[in-house]
Each structure stands twice: as C-alpha cells, then as structure tokens.
Amino acid sequence: MSHLSHKDRDSNYRRLFADELRLAEAAKQAAEDRSLSQAELYPLHQELAAQYDKLLKTTIKLSRISDIQGKTLKEQEEAIQTANDNLKRLEKLRQQLIADISHELGTPMVAVQGYVKALLDGVIQPEEKYLRLIYDRVLTVNHLIKDLFLLSTYQANRNHFDHQQIDIDAFILSVEDKYAPECERSGIELEVFKGVDGSGSAQEEMIVWADPVRLDQVFENLVQNAIKFTGAGGSIQLTSEFQPKYEGARLGHWFVKISDTGLGISEEDIAHVFERFFRSKEAKARGIQGTGLGLAITKEIIQKHGGEIGVTSAPDEGTTFFFLIPAELIDKCENAQSKILGGL
C-alpha cells in the first residue's frame, strides 16, 4: 500500500470502514426522513449521526497518518540497518587490511632479520647470494609500501591525474615495443590487434583524454600479470579498438582486451581478483610472487578515467582482462594542424 496513490489509499480506507460509513449514512437518512413527525427527538438524532460521521472521517485520517508514519519508520529502520551493515563491513575490511599488511610486511622482514642475524653471528658469510636475497626482500617491502600508498591516495581522491589527449595507435605501438622483448625472452608470443571493431576511416584516429603515466601503469599490471601466468610456448593477445555509441558515431569507448593462455583463475576466485592483497590459489600454489595490489590499483585508475574493467577466466584455459574508457574519433589532418598551431 506504500506505493498507492492518495486516491487509491482513500478508496482502501473507505472499503475498510464500509460498514461504519453505511450505518452513519443510514442514521442521517433516518433522521431526515422522521424529523417531520418527531420534531424534538430527531434533530438530536441527526446531530448525533453527523458527529458520528465526523468521528469516522477523523478515524480514517488518523489511520492514513499512521500508515504514512509506519512507512516512514520502516524506511528509517532500513536505512539505519544498511548503515550498520556498512559499518560492520568496513570494520571487517579494516581488520582484514591490518592483518594482511602485518602478514605481507612481516614475511619478508622476518627473512631479512634472519639473514642479517646469521651474518652477524658468522653462521653465513657475506656472499653475494645472501646479500642478493636480503636486497630482494627489502625491494618487496618497498614495492608493497609504495603500492599501498598509491592505492590509498586513489581511493581517497588525493591523487592528481594529468589528463592529456592521447593518440591510441601511437600509445599501443609503444606498449608493443615495451613488452615484445620480454615476451620473446620468456618464449611467449605477443600478438597485437588494432581497430577491429570499426575504428573509422584511414583519415580518422582514436583519442582519449587520460593520464599517460597512469595508463602505462594499467598496461604494466595487466601485461606483466599475463606474462607471469603464461608459460613458455603460450601466447598473449592485446586487442585495441574503438566502439562507437551507435553506428557512425564519433563518440564511444576505447575497448582493450588482454588475453593469455596461462593458468587461468577458478570461478571461486574470479569475484575477488580486484580486491587488495588478493592472490589466487593458483598463484600461491606455484609460488608466483606479487603483492596482490596491482589489480586493485588498476581498477582504481580505470574508474578515475570514467571507465569499467572486468575479467573472464577458467582454470587451465587462460584469462582475459578487458576495460572500457571514453574515447572519440577525430580527423588526422585537423589534429595535426591543431598541434602545429599549438606549438607556435
């Protein structure tokens, strides 16, 4: 009844008090019919019926007010319950975060402490392999602290983004040049596809307004993930294309898809891949290193650019990460002229 109109609610209340209203109307009618024969008694009866009618109407109004107040109280109760649930969830996340930080920082620091103590006690000699182990553990801690700070500033909206006009074809070419040598060394084939879904004519180019440093970090996280989880003989496919809002439109989205033929992710883990400190069971089982913050940072960067990110995967069938960022097509000649004029 909370979604009914005022007229519908009034009809419901009148149905609810139908008998009382009928009796009141009958009493009034009886008083009018007999007032001519018993002048002294029936005027009082008529007044009584009128007062009873007013009482019924007042009762209907009070019932309506009670219904509205009940609805308001229920909404307030639901809002309080939602806020309470959110507070409990945040507190649980805070406790989990502290536990995760303690564990992630504690593990490498315990190793560093053990090696340094062994060196001081003369149990081991200051050989390069031990110094290298200590150095690697310290680097792990530094990376963890840096990623935590970066993620916190993103989530608190305290990180400045330097949005610039980026030529996507040139940007993707730089990504290919950057990661092709590493893929080759790892025995992984890197394939890059551009403009598959109608990126316009040869006279047009796709651009986005974005922070190039942050975008570079997105590809660093996604491509490096693909390399880590794909063995020699596997492949990585990077697809970059323009998806118009409707056919022929010059406004739309830059769609990027990075697929690998690696380990894949279980259905149970898929829902958690963008959570901070999350590492899949496959990664832990195979001893693949990582802080578990890269994908959480990637998601924040994409969202700060007004985009969305997602993932599909299955164990032993590879993984595909994809994201969308607002983009547009522009004329190459006009863009070149504007760059020349801007440089004068």
Rank of each mutant, 00 (worst) to 15 (best):
A24F: 00
Q237V: 12
E334Q: 11
F277D: 02
A27K: 10
F149C: 06
V123D: 11
S259G: 13
R15N: 15
Q125R: 14
S2D: 15
V256L: 10
A271Q: 15
Q164K: 15
S37N: 10
A118V: 03
I168L: 05
T82R: 10
Y115Q: 01
S11H: 14
A26C: 05
L133C: 04
E20M: 11
I145H: 05
L263F: 04
S259C: 09
A30N: 10
V175S: 00
E334H: 07
I207A: 03
D162E: 15
T261A: 10
V138D: 05
E104Y: 13
P212W: 12
K117V: 02
S201A: 11
L344C: 01
Q46F: 06
P43I: 06
L133N: 12
D197F: 11
V196A: 12
D269W: 04
K88A: 07
F242D: 00
A327R: 12
T58I: 08
S201R: 12
E308G: 14
E268L: 07
S266N: 10
F277M: 08
I166S: 00
F171D: 01
Q303G: 02
A271W: 06
Y42M: 06
K61T: 15
A170Q: 13
I134Y: 07
T107A: 12
H6I: 13
D331A: 02
E32F: 12
R185I: 09
K117I: 02
L173V: 09
A39N: 07
D147F: 03
A111Q: 05
S174P: 08
T58D: 12
F229M: 01
L87H: 08
Q46R: 13
T261H: 01
Q337L: 15
G195D: 14
T312N: 09
E78I: 03
K92E: 08
N142M: 13
L48F: 06
E77I: 05
L41N: 06
K178G: 01
